[in-house]
Amino acid sequence: MGGMMRETQRLSLFWRIFLLNAAVVTVAFAFLMLGPFTVSAPVLLTEAALLSGVLVVMLVANAGLLRLGLAPLERLARTMSTVDLLRPGHRLAVTGRSGIADLIRSFNTMLDRLEAERATSAARALSAQEAERKRIAQELHDEVGQTLTAVLLELKRVADHAPEPVSGEVRQVQETIRNGLDEIRRIARRLRPGVLEELGLSSALKSLAGEFSTGGLTVRRNIDGDLPDLGQDAELVLYRVAQESLTNTARHSGARQVSLCLSHVPGSAAGPAEIELRIRDDGAGVGAAPEGAGIRGMRERALLIGADLNVGPAPGRGTEIRLRVPLGGEESIND
């Protein structure tokens, strides 16, 4: 008996469906052949009712058997419709008989391959993006910045020797160029934060919070002082996520208050030690709007170091972004 069951499990999906239908038809045929039934010509009302009842029983039995046999396929279809490579790890339990189980295993294997390939391609893209940002920031600082500095010095010399009111007009031009130079330096810092490389993550986040504490927006920061060494890649991801979050808050949320917290969460029985970045504002919230390129970019960065990113409503009102980085689990962006 056990051998017969194993043989049935090894049948393909086509043959199992065929045998299910054949079994239902055979049982109905035997019931009509061996039972005390005859069919008159023309068919009597009682005979028609009996045949209709047998047909209904056949259809119901066939539908029930097919639903039972194809249930794993329905679960697979639901999973396929909800797969998101930016939220990896979701797999379908391998259940069902031979053909369906093989299909589920193939689907899970395909997801493994797609997630690995996406992680590799995203790492290369982000590495190229960081290199390009560094190049542009360097050119802004060395080329444009130095040129404007030379122009300021020349304008100062002209203003010192020019009569009024020309001297006042030249000084106004100086002030305009000086403001433009400050803006170029600010853009260069955002493209490639030198403070992150020179002074570390804590100082970089403090500087970032100070930059956004303008124009009616107040950024309160709370950064642990006993942070472990995270590595260059993890620090860069944490900084970029904080930068993108504050940028979105300043542009779209209408918030007045933002809290930026970076904390060290010790390991426990519930999970390993991790670094948690939490950014919470009192703005309008995300609502039902689809995720934009900024949030998708943050998710891709989080995947590169094995981190978990959650974006959702904050307690009360506003938006909360929470990034959890497991210690010792990061992969190199430059790999």
Rank of each mutant, 00 (worst) to 15 (best):
R256T: 08
G297F: 04
E320C: 02
I279A: 13
V94G: 08
P163R: 11
L327N: 13
R299I: 13
A150N: 10
R190A: 06
R240L: 12
A93S: 07
L19R: 06
I17L: 14
Q172V: 12
P42V: 12
A234S: 07
V166W: 09
R186S: 15
L152P: 02
E175K: 03
G3A: 14
A137W: 08
A61W: 09
N108G: 06
E139M: 07
G96I: 05
T147W: 10
S202E: 06
V144K: 08
L309Y: 03
F14S: 14
V25E: 14
A128F: 11
G292N: 09
Q232A: 15
R278Q: 14
S98A: 15
N108H: 06
P272I: 03
R10F: 05
A250M: 08
R301H: 03
R105M: 13
A209R: 04
I279W: 01
D335S: 15
I100N: 07
E175D: 12
R124P: 00
S253G: 07
I295T: 04
T79G: 13
L86H: 02
S207I: 04
D281M: 01
L20S: 08
L191V: 05
S203W: 00
V195C: 12
M1W: 02
A242K: 02
H161D: 11
I184G: 05
A101E: 11
I223M: 04
A284G: 06
L65Y: 01
M80Q: 14
T46S: 14
R186Y: 05
I184Q: 10
A188P: 02
W15E: 06
V60A: 09
N62S: 12
I223H: 00
G96R: 01
V265R: 11
R280G: 08
F107H: 07
V57S: 13
V219S: 04
R299H: 15
S259G: 12
G69K: 01
L103H: 06
N310C: 12
N248M: 03
R278M: 09
A209Y: 00
L304Q: 13
N179W: 05
L327V: 15
C261R: 07
A137K: 09
L196I: 15
P326C: 14
I136G: 06
L73A: 01
G210N: 04
Q257G: 07
S203C: 13
N222P: 01
T82E: 10
L230F: 01
R324V: 00
V39W: 01
L55K: 01
Q129I: 06
T214V: 15
V158C: 03
G312H: 15
L34H: 04
E211A: 13
